[in-house]
């Protein structure tokens, strides 16, 4: 006979696991895009190369 998880406790466990999984995926994506944004932005108080050479 199959053991089936039908009690509410299992639903709550599932919601917690799925929720945490999504939060972790979201956090990884956020750090990834944050890194891209930081790498592509000029550092504060730094003049573009063209202006520095003048």
């Amino acid at each position: 006979m199959d053991i089936r998880a039908e009690h509410e406790i299992h639903q709550r466990r599932l919601s917690r696991n799925v929720g945490l999984g999504l939060v972790l995926v979201g956090f990884v994506a956020l750090v990834y895009f944050l890194t891209i944004a930081k790498v592509n932005s000029p550092a504060p108080n730094t003049l573009p190369a063209a202006e520095q050479s003048q």
Partner: peptide, 14 residues
């Protein structure tokens, strides 16, 4: 479940 102290909070509870 019946006593409320399940130790199995859902995501919404956190």
């Amino acid at each position: 479940h019946s006593n409320g102290q399940t130790g199995e909070a859902g995501f919404g509870d956190y």
